[in-house]
Write a protein that binds this DNA or RNA. Structure first.
Lengths: 334, 334
DNA sequence: CTGAAAGCGCTTACAG
DNA sequence: CTGAAAGCGCTTACAG
């Protein structure tokens, strides 16, 4: 591979001059600039990033962490981020965490080791105290986090409002006995804006209160992730004496499982049991029973996260908290 | 950030010795090794990859190119590749090409610049002549390509056999007038194993011949990618005097569009019109009319590609061509 | 505008 | 087993 010295030799100039044209320094005469450029072309010269990094220059690449790329929410999120970053001339490096804290550190170490200029964390796996230690190495942006008093931009959906609105929507459509499923192992009751899941539940509760209702804890289903889990939930519902008439499923997969199993057992959706998904995955519109669902504005969130990162890099003022609205997509299942 | 010199100073040893323990050289006394290790821990030292790369050592990271991450075929393929690579201690860097040749060069330059040890190309955007120029910089593996006389491993699905079998399957189910949709702008009729699309078409043709049938070119639909395109295809079909009774849709999206539009216009699927998808996307089983589709063995292909790459890196003998079988997944739409 | 030289953080012969 | 020194390919003051 050709090096900067090869170019300098061929052009009959010093490496300093070659370096200047590489870095677009203005202090080079047109004549020599051309000489250097033609030498670079002749040799097919490309500067070695490792050497430039060693000197502390920018990498023009960004890392983004997500739990799992096969989850459409995250693949679309990454896609939006990448498009925006791409326009600014940055490459994107996608790191899957698979929910493991060490994998997140892999991405963070990219920052520490100056392999990337910044990292956008879409799935926080470590405590803030450990993330915080990496802030000195480069820029960090968080997506869908509820941390307070943290000195990095956070872009998130308004879970409280989304779930509040969605629950009202269910009441407006005549449902009264609302079950609630979540991926979490437990539900922590906290006030608004405490954390992602608590915020969702708080929005839900708040609508219940507005309708003078309390929550029936027989209708709480935790640890629900897959369509399979959804089927189990439906089976459990059928064993209940006092059955809910609709369930907020926590995700489209779970919703899909519930509605499939209901259909299989001859229970009509949405008449006998309503089902409300979350995320609006690409397939949800084309299901056997098209899913009514709460949509997160992935594209908006991704682009905002990317722009926040670019702002940070360019030393601009960027607002520490950007909140995007969720939206109920009305289809057949509720 | 702590450097190797800081560690050496703290341990009261030379940088050479520190370097030796970093690189697990056997020629270090246990005593000094421990001294170095405790110094590294105390400082939170991590070797700077850029500096190591400059000296020509391995990066332990691999790049993989795909056209678009939001396409489930590719997100699952990448997922399989990454899982396998992960077990071997490699990180994976995902590069989206968006179908652009320059983006593919981005990935290839990662190789040239020693940022990755190898690249797995799942979407060839440049001519082989240009890819070939990068072989000297590192390892390359191709997925789903039909190039001949090329000195890199290729992992692909047996498109001919898959489409041959699928077409036979349609005949077995009573269909006789088979339409064919493809994402390509044109169909090139070539013999078996010429290229990806020609191979599919050849398999299809071959089954037609077995049933003493020729292909009706009114039933060929090109440039079909999205569900929207599928809807258009259905509309075109309805204008035909001599209508097909089933269509091989080229992708699940297109199949979905065709079957949706058919339903909307009161044409019964699969009774009046059968629809066969390709890829078996996660949603296809849960569509309003569950899709019968040709499944590519993504997981197998991804893992084989990763293993071929690892074999190359380790200097093992790896077979130049690995072919995986496609499979018809029978559901409701055909 | 241009060049010689130091130095970024490592690894690796070369001596001992 | 251990260390001093050269060098990987660049950038950036410092002089001129």
């Amino acid at each position: 591979m050709a090096t900067i010295s090869d170019v300098a030799r061929l052009a009959g100039l010093s490496v300093s001059t070659v370096s200047r044209v590489i870095n677009k320094s203005p202090h080079v005469s047109d004549k020599k600039r051309e000489a250097v450029e033609s030498a670079m072309n002749e040799l097919g010269y490309v500067p070695l990033p490792a050497a430039r990094q060693l000197r502390g220059s920018r990498t023009n690449t960004m890392a983004v962490t997500i739990p799992r790329i096969v989850n459409p929410f995250f693949s679309y999120l990454v896609d939006a981020i990448e498009q925006e970053l791409d326009e600014a001339g940055y490459s994107t490096l996608i790191v899957q965490t698979f929910g493991r804290a060490e994998e997140e550190l892999t991405a963070l170490n990219l920052l520490k080791n100056q392999q990337v200029d910044g990292v956008i964390l879409c799935s926080l796996e470590n405590d803030w105290s450990v993330i915080n230690g990496y802030c000195k190495y480069g820029k960090i942006v968080l997506v869908n986090e509820y941390l307070k008093d943290v000195d990095v931009p956070i872009i998130r959906g308004d879970q409280y409002d989304g779930f509040y609105t969605a629950t009202n929507f269910l009441f407006d459509n005549g449902y009264k006995k609302i079950a609630y499923a979540t991926g979490r192992k437990t539900i922590t009751i906290m006030k608004k804006e405490s954390n992602f899941d608590a915020d969702r539940f708080a929005g839900f509760q708040s609508s219940l209160s507005d309708h003078n209702l309390g929550f029936n804890y027989d209708w709480l289903f935790t640890n629900a992730h897959t369509a399979e889990d959804g089927k189990e939930i439906f089976k459990k519902i059928m064993t209940l004496k006092n059955k809910p008439d609709v369930v907020i499923a926590g995700s489209d997969e779970v919703a899909m499982g519930i509605s499939q199993e209901a259909e299989k057992q001859g229970i009509k959706v949405p008449e006998q049991l309503g089902v409300l998904g979350v995320d609006d995955q690409p397939a949800s519109a084309n299901l056997r029973i098209p899913l009514t669902t709460i949509k997160q504005p992935v594209d908006e969130m991704g682009r905002k996260a990317a722009r926040a990162m670019l702002g940070l890099i360019n030393g601009e003022e960027v607002s520490k908290m950007q909140i995007c609205k969720l939206k109920v997509i009305k289809r057949a299942s509720a």
